[in-house]
Deep mutational scan, measured.
Amino acid sequence: KELVSALYDYQEKSPREVTMKKGDILTLLNSTNKDWWKVEVNGRQGFVPAAYVKKL
């Protein structure tokens, strides 16, 4: 599985998104959309802005 690192804090703005803190390591589930990537963090799945994470 592919991992990404959070470059910035992000506070979810809808139920489809997830909150992350800078430095968090997230499991990348889907990166086909260039703007929003689906990740899993702390057992929750949702979307984060692609520009806020980088692949490890």
Rank of each mutant, 00 (worst) to 15 (best):
D35Y: 15
G23N: 06
S14N: 13
V48L: 02
K34D: 12
K38P: 02
V39G: 00
G46P: 00
L3G: 03
K21N: 09
R16P: 05
K54G: 11
T32S: 14
G23H: 06
D35A: 10
Y52S: 15
Y52I: 10
V48P: 01
P49G: 01
V53I: 11
N42L: 08
S31F: 07
P15W: 11
T32G: 10
V18F: 11
V4P: 02
L29V: 12
G43N: 07
W36S: 02
N33W: 07
L28Q: 00
K13I: 07
N42P: 05
E2I: 15
K1D: 10
Y52A: 15
E2H: 11
N33R: 09
K34W: 07
V41L: 15
T32Y: 10
I25S: 04
E40W: 06
D9Y: 05
Y52N: 08
R16Y: 14
I25P: 03
R44H: 08
D24Q: 12
S5F: 15
E17K: 04
V18I: 15
V39R: 00
K1A: 13
D9L: 02
N33Y: 09
P49H: 02
D9P: 07
A6W: 01
V53R: 00
S14K: 07
K22H: 07
Y52F: 14
A51D: 14
E12C: 13
D35M: 12
T19K: 04
M20W: 02
P15Y: 10
L56H: 09
E2L: 13
V39C: 04
S5A: 15
M20I: 15
K21F: 10
K22Q: 11
V18H: 03
T19I: 03
L56F: 10
G46L: 04
V41Y: 11
E40R: 06
L28G: 00
L7S: 05
L28A: 02
N30H: 08
T32A: 12
N33S: 10
L3S: 08
V48Q: 00
V4Y: 14
S31Q: 11
T19E: 04
D24S: 06
P15F: 10
F47H: 05
L28D: 01
N30I: 08
I25R: 06
E2N: 12
K1H: 14
P15V: 10
K13A: 11
G46M: 05
E2Y: 12
W37D: 00
V4W: 14
I25F: 06
L7W: 05
E12T: 09
L26W: 02
Y8G: 06
A6G: 03
V53G: 01
R16E: 12
P15Q: 10
V39P: 00
W37C: 04
N33M: 09
N30S: 13
N33E: 11
I25T: 08
M20A: 02
Y8H: 12
T27W: 14
V4S: 05
G23I: 01
E17G: 13
L56K: 06
D35C: 14
K21P: 00
W37Y: 08
A6D: 01
N42C: 09
W37R: 01
A50C: 08
D24K: 02
N30L: 09
K22W: 04
S31V: 08
E40Q: 09
E17V: 05
M20K: 00
L28K: 01
R16G: 14
Y10E: 01
F47Y: 14
K55R: 13
K34S: 12
W37V: 08
M20S: 01
V39W: 00
K38E: 15
V48W: 00
W36Y: 08
T32R: 10
R16L: 14
F47V: 07
K54L: 11
M20L: 09
S14F: 07
L28C: 05
I25H: 06
S31Y: 08
K55W: 09
V39Y: 00
I25Q: 06
V41F: 14
Q45H: 08
K34P: 14
G43Y: 04
K34F: 08
K13T: 13
S5G: 09
A50Q: 05
A51M: 11
T19L: 03
Y52D: 05
L26A: 10
Q45F: 08
Q45C: 12
N30G: 07
K55T: 10
V39H: 00
L3A: 07
N42Y: 08
F47M: 08
S31H: 09
D35G: 09
K21M: 10
G23V: 00
Y8W: 12
E17S: 07
I25K: 06
K55S: 11
L28Y: 01
N30W: 07
Y10Q: 00
K13C: 13
P49R: 03
N33I: 06
N42R: 11
L3E: 08
V53H: 00
T27F: 12
R16W: 15
T19A: 07
P15M: 10
T32C: 15
V4G: 14
L7I: 12
S14W: 06
Y10L: 01
W36G: 00
P15D: 13
N30Y: 07
L28H: 01
A6Y: 01
K54T: 14
S5R: 15
A51T: 11
N42G: 12
V18P: 01
M20N: 00
V53K: 01
E17R: 04
S14T: 12
K55F: 12
V39D: 00
E40F: 06
Q11G: 08
D9I: 02
A51K: 14
A6E: 01
V4K: 02
L28P: 00
V48A: 03
P49V: 01
K22P: 03
E2P: 12
K21Q: 11
Q45P: 06
K34M: 10
G43Q: 06
K38A: 09
A51F: 10
D24A: 07
Y52E: 03
T27C: 11
T19S: 15
G23Y: 06
A6H: 01
N42K: 09
W36F: 07
E40G: 05
D24P: 00
E17F: 06
L56W: 10
R16K: 13
Y10T: 01
E40P: 00
L26K: 00
K54R: 12
Q45R: 11
Y10I: 01
Y52K: 09
A51S: 14
V4A: 14
K34L: 10
P15N: 11
I25Y: 05
V18T: 06
L7M: 10
D9K: 03
N42E: 10
G43E: 06
G23T: 02
I25W: 06
D9R: 03
L3F: 14
G43A: 05
Q11V: 15
L26M: 14
V48F: 00
N30C: 14
P49A: 02
K22C: 08
E12I: 06
G46I: 04
P49Q: 02
K1I: 14
V48D: 01
E40M: 08
R44W: 04
P49N: 03
F47E: 04
Y8N: 09
D24H: 04
G23F: 05
V4D: 02
E12D: 05
V18K: 01
K55L: 15
L28F: 03
R44I: 09
E12K: 14
S31I: 07
L3Y: 15
T32H: 12
P49T: 01
L26F: 07
V41P: 00
D9G: 05
T32K: 11
N30F: 07
K21L: 08
W36M: 06
L26C: 11
K13S: 11
K1Q: 12
Y8E: 11
K54Y: 10
S31N: 09
Y52M: 14
K38C: 14
K55P: 13
S14P: 05
Q45D: 07
L56N: 07
K22V: 09
Q45K: 10
L3I: 10
V39Q: 00
V53F: 04
T27V: 15
A50R: 09
L29E: 03
K55E: 09
V18G: 02
V48G: 01
M20T: 03
N33V: 05
F47K: 03
G46K: 02
K13G: 09
L7N: 05
L7F: 04
N33F: 08
R16T: 12
N33C: 12
D35L: 13
G46S: 02
S31M: 11
G43W: 03
